[in-house]
Amino acid sequence: MQTLRASWFGFEKHWLWYRRNWRATAVSSFLSPLLFLVALGLGFGSQVQSTALIGGVPYLQYLAPALVVITAVQGATFESTYAIMSSFLWQKTYIGMVATPITPAQVVYGQVMWIGSQLFVRSVVFVVIAVALGAAGGPGIGLAVLFATLAGLAFSCPLIAYSATLDKPDSFNTVFRFVLMPMTLFTGAFFPVSQLPNWLLPLVWLTPAWHGIELARGATFGTLGLLPALGHTAYLVAMIAVGLFFSVRFFHRRLAV
């Protein structure tokens, strides 16, 4: 109970910041996924001549639930890299927080709660707009909000742990370029992973994006079985748990006096 309240304070601090600075993040968090949906779903979609590969559904509808997930994972990446480093090094907000009775673990929980709630809100907005654009393949697209948030957090938590060990932002570019970018393109959001060479598949299965997309798309088109659903969810939850465990450790090491 104590932990929950303390974490809530951390969350509040983020909210106060956001109220003053929302404009800067509005483009990347709301507008850009929407533009992608329109350009690829509608624009590219209008050129699509064969949908055999994706089970005969319109490309726009095929893309929409996966794009929710991809957007969440991308958002999570930014929130878990520079933002974390800044709180340690530049703005030193974490340093200030642990000078109060708040513990390093509670700082982590507050941070993750904040990221999770942001991902959730962004996903809701995205899905509402997708439905308005006729991009919903079924009522199940509503569940994509939950799966996107889950996948986002599954990538966020280990990344927070990693960021907490760094003193320089130099390696973030490597993360964006060699992890985030391939994960965006090759985990089934834009075309089925069956198109990829077989040797690549095990790597794809490791990514939270693939699990999230399987869940979100399955829910949308009503093709999701109970066992696969449990399996994917369990994997994502496990990533969150492991990520949190290491985050707490590293935050402790860095912040405890």
Binding site: F44, V48, S50, F191, L196
Partner: peptide, 16 residues
């Protein structure tokens, strides 16, 4: 290069 690769593998399959 990743983009190019995804074109050949994926997008190109939808649009001849």
């Amino acid at each position: 290069i990743l983009f190019l690769w995804s074109l050949g593998l994926g997008f190109g399959q939808f649009v001849a």
